[in-house]
Amino acid sequence: MKAPRFSYVRPESLERVLELLAEHGDEARILAGGQSLMPTLNMRLSEPRLLIDINRIDALKGISLEDGTVRVGALARHAELLDSPLVAEHLPLIAAAMPHVAHVAVRNRGTFGGSIALADPAAELPACAVALDAAFVLASLRGRRTVPARSFFHGLYETELAEDELLVEARIPALAAGYRSSFLEFARRHGDFALAGICCHARIDGAVLSDVRLACFGSEDRPRFAGAASAAAEGRAWSGEVKEAVKAALGGDLDPIGNFHASAATRLHLARVLAGRALDRMAAAG
């Protein structure tokens, strides 16, 4: 199981990366952490002509807080996110999600940007980004643009990224006063991709929820913002009745895709159970 032949280049600047992308288009692949790309190469599921290794581009690294927004560089490793006090304090949803992302050796290499750009529908970080209303900064020789997470994910492994574009960083609003997060996923084995997962983010005043944002993963072909379920809790005090309303509304938000790991109906059921439990936890956390 050996990768097919390809060429390799390790540019030293972001500018050079963008030039190479512009020149080679879909014949090139960006090599960041490689934790998803390398298996597809080894299995010959993907046969690019050129790998552009961005691992030494300093401009893509780091996690920082600027004016109430956390900037997460595309090259921030999963391990960095897991260990970052800044993430723990300002992005507790992501901090809660990180232990579920694969295993230590994968987290040491895998990158935030790689996970977002790959857009695996069962991955944790894309859904976290949706729930947190993150924005992604995309760059190409044509310039830079910022895309909200909710409109970034188009479908199975499909995103807003054009062939010549690179995901540079995410800008994620830091946890504001009165807000809480809750994360739950259900996987067969620790570190596996989830059969269902839920990211919750909301303001809680007493028991009353507002600005409720539920995002699901592991259900459809992309992370899904659960608008109806979020609305079902909006402005209401958390109760058993509201929980049932959220779970019922989720049926309108989600149209899960079944496969041999779990049917569509099971995935919807699990998403509902997790949503109820995640909100229970969030409400209880105060």
Binding site: Q35, M38, D53, A105, N108, R109
Partner: peptide, 12 residues
Amino acid sequence: AVVRGCLMLAVQ
């Protein structure tokens, strides 16, 4: 740090 040796290129 530990890595998966099969998911990293020698050139990297």
